[in-house]
């Protein structure tokens, strides 16, 4: 076995010892580097916050937002969502629709916004129960609401689906 020796010829440290040290050191450096450069995943929180934001604006103390069934309802403006982020950036998606009390979807009162690809991802994930790493994360919930159609007060659900695939990113040196 080769050994590093001093002038008298006695052993200082063996090549194998150096090799073991390098392996341990390399392992620690790679492990630490991977740990601290890893992406912190906050998407679950984000989809819940988007759901909450939509739910708070569409469900007003148990009643559906009074403008929701008007033909001119602007969900982005009404729910204070930034269209530049939701639509242009393409990291978010949401969908809202009304159902009757038996959870049958109504033919009116449906709104969508953002990247529809994420909506399709959500369908795939829900249907196949696949856990895809780079797919958007989704959240679906419903709120019981009362709404008026032709002067008749009805009860049903406002279903809200939200998705996000925002990973964040480094910005270049100025």
């Amino acid at each position: 076995m080769r050994k590093l020796k001093n002038r008298r010829g006695t052993e200082l440290i063996s090549i194998w010892e150096l090799f073991v040290l390098l392996i341990i050191g390399g392992g620690i450096v790679i492990g630490v580097w991977l740990f601290y450069t890893a992406n912190v995943d906050v998407i679950d929180g984000e989809v819940s916050l988007l759901y909450e934001k939509l739910a708070l604006c569409l469900n007003e103390n148990g009643y559906l937002n009074e403008n929701y069934l008007n033909g001119s309802f602007d969900i982005m403006k009404e729910c204070e969502l930034n269209p530049k982020v939701i639509v242009k950036e393409g990291d978010f998606y949401f969908e809202t629709y009304l159902t009757d009390i038996d959870a049958n979807e109504l033919s009116f009162g449906k709104f969508k916004g953002g990247n529809e690809g994420h909506g399709k991802d959500c369908v795939v994930i829900t249907d196949s129960e696949v856990n895809a790493k780079n797919f958007a994360k989704c959240y679906t919930g419903r709120e019981i609401v009362r709404y008026k159609i032709k002067d008749e007060m009805l009860e049903g659900y406002i279903v809200i689906k939200t998705a996000s695939n925002q990973r964040g990113g480094k910005i270049p040196v100025v």
């Binding site: 988007l50 934001k53 969502l81 930034n82 950036e89 964040g168 480094k170 910005i171 270049p172 040196v173």
Partner: peptide, 20 residues
């Protein structure tokens, strides 16, 4: 709709928020 954080001269980190 984004927030930039820079703690060094080597760029920074950007994250988008959806509220308007």
């Amino acid at each position: 709709g984004y927030v930039d954080v820079r703690l060094s001269s080597h760029g920074g980190y950007r994250y988008y928020f959806f509220t308007n």
